[in-house]
Amino acid sequence: MINDKAKNSSQLIMNSSSGHLSRLKEILDTREIGLLLIIFVASILLSIFSENFLTFSNLTSVAIGMNYDVLLALGMTLVLLSKGIDLSVGSILGLTGIITTMLLQAGVSILFAVILGLLSGTFLGFINGIFIAKFRINPFIVTLGMMAIARGLSVILTSGYFVSNLPEGYLIIGQGKFLGIPNPTYVMILFVILFDYLLRKWGPFYKAFYIGTNPDAAELSGINVSSIILAGYVISGFLSGLAAIFMTSRLAMGYAQFGLGAELKAICAAIIGGASMGGGEGSIVGAFLGVMLLAIINNGFVLLNLSIYWQGVINGLILVIAVTVDAIRRARKGKSRV
């Protein structure tokens, strides 16, 4: 059955291989559109079953919840793309949040604290990158080590207490709104568009696709493999830092356990969005939609008062369905190894 359909549809592609129609078909046949469709259907269902779903306040709160995960998933996509993985994003988020808020408590100016916070996130990413790209040590192990170290340091610095009493000005970053929409949402959208554009069109980023597919051939093709891999981890660290600033200012405190488990969510979203564990593939918009899908389902559980126990089951099933649909789509297009 599937086979017949596959034949027909690829026949269509062949027949209209010239002109805009095929372009359109190509775009419609991407994973992003598929995800968008699923999100669309889920939203319709939710708005039927709960009148609260399509309210402005609910949608804003979904957007705010997504914000941190999106930033982490962006970094994760870049790293997965170059055949790596970053398990430390969650704890870098935690530590950076602690550093920033403690600096603020110590009376450092807001601008300075934010800059130092971002720098420390970037620096931790840089350390990951150095171990991986320069010393050539397995990224799984390196970032796992970093994950433990950063989380441990967060606890040590705070002895497990909250860091609160943050200056008003700082809270505006995460809590302020422009035209009714929270500030971080703008930043998130800006980053999604920027990174998506860069990844498709900008040489240095584009090279990551080659690295992920065959790093040795990439090296022989004159691509600066280690610098690009390093850059991926640095960016991932920076984005974790940014997420930390949004989170701490939104919640008006720093806490050592912020971002716990965020790495798995980010990996999930990146993969639902089209990244592959084998490297060489990934899409920023896809990762964004992946986070969105997970967030909407989350929201559904809250709105419909469903037992939270089932959420794990549903999330797991979503992951399976998303990758299965994609596996079928790819097989149909002859894109997987036979």
């Binding site: 564990m277 037992s307 126990y309 089951v313 999330n315 992951l319």
Partner: peptide, 20 residues
């Protein structure tokens, strides 16, 4: 599909099942 993803899915599902 890569084992990482398949088993991540069963992990998430199982955690849910355990809670249920």
């Amino acid at each position: 599909v890569h084992p990482f993803i398949c088993t991540l899915a069963t992990l998430t599902t199982l955690r849910g099942v355990n809670l249920v």
